[in-house]
Write a protein that binds this DNA or RNA. Structure first.
Lengths: 159, 159
DNA sequence: ACCAAATCGTTAATGCTATGAATATTATTA
DNA sequence: TAATAATATTCATAGCATTAACGATTTGGT
């Protein structure tokens, strides 16, 4: 046995794999905490909150459109819209040209809440950036992009 | 108005914020897809799968211990362990020194499944690394670490 | 003009994730 | 020994999400 221990490529890869695994887990875990916090702070089930945030720059949305954007079934959206309606954040009118379609839009209260949530999102991401040294910000974003691409490529391979 | 438009620091920050927001969202979304895939592939509700993976290197776990590691209520763990027991992946004995405590351990089938899942995790992270140029891997990991720290710091500030 | 097919949203049944309060059993400790 | 603490379970409740079946409406072809 040699005292000077040199890592083989294999071992190096093992190490990098588990480090990547840990880092991603921690980052995702952090996001889950944010999600919980957000939901409590704005007194909205998270799915309803996400639904509310779709009305950025769009006056009206339909059940179908929301379903596509949230990537859930239409029946789920019915429930979410009911919840938001009961809370007075959203209201529904009928499409004058097609009686099948419901046009859903924010109430003033909904706009206000949506604004608050958007501000919170900005705030939290601003805080994250502020916690990165100025000269490291661009690199962080670049390498995050590298990771995102690599993850999507890996997903395409495996799944 | 000037044709040569120079971004103010504020605008630069805005841009970086929304880019960070998007990147993190995409990465998290990717992880959610992985989670779904995993759950279907191994025919286990995701919570049970996570529970199974806690038995790495630990012979026995208790309900309480699992609850702490998964960060869920004990009553939730009772359900998960029931599910895993019905599937023959886990078995329970009584602690010989304390009749209140149940010692939960993997069955051979559970060990096998747990091994498969761990292998899948390694595989997917290896694939991600393989999709990053060799000379960018170390930097990616470093900057991921930077991001993770910044996120945790921001969390501590806001939440 | 009419009928079949497609579209849109809702309802009902089902299953997973998770919590909190109440409870039964067993250990500890004063 | 009696009170208290620890461990796990049960029950009620709530959120997240799907699929299948349905009713209402529109559209397209004949």
């Amino acid at each position: 046995m040699n005292n000077v221990y040199v890592k083989t490529d294999e071992e190096l890869a093992e190490y990098q794999i588990s480090r990547l695994q840990d880092l991603i887990n921690e980052i995702v875990h952090c996001c889950e905490d944010k999600r919980l916090y957000e939901s409590q702070r704005f007194e909205l089930p998270y799915a309803e909150l996400r639904c509310l945030m779709l009305f950025e720059g769009e006056r009206y949305l339909t059940v179908k459109g929301i379903a596509q954007r949230l990537e859930v079934a239409k029946s789920r959206v019915t429930k979410l819209v009911n919840g938001l309606t009961e809370k007075g954040l959203v209201e529904t009118i009928e499409d004058p040209r097609d009686a099948r379609i419901k046009l859903i839009s924010l109430t003033p209260a909904g706009k206000a809440k949506s604004g608050e949530i958007a501000a919170f999102h900005s705030e939290i991401h601003a805080k994250i950036l502020a916690n990165i040294a100025t000269d490291e910000r661009l690199n962080t974003l670049s390498y995050l992009e590298v990771l995102r691409s690599a993850m999507e490529a890996a997903k395409a391979e495996v799944m």
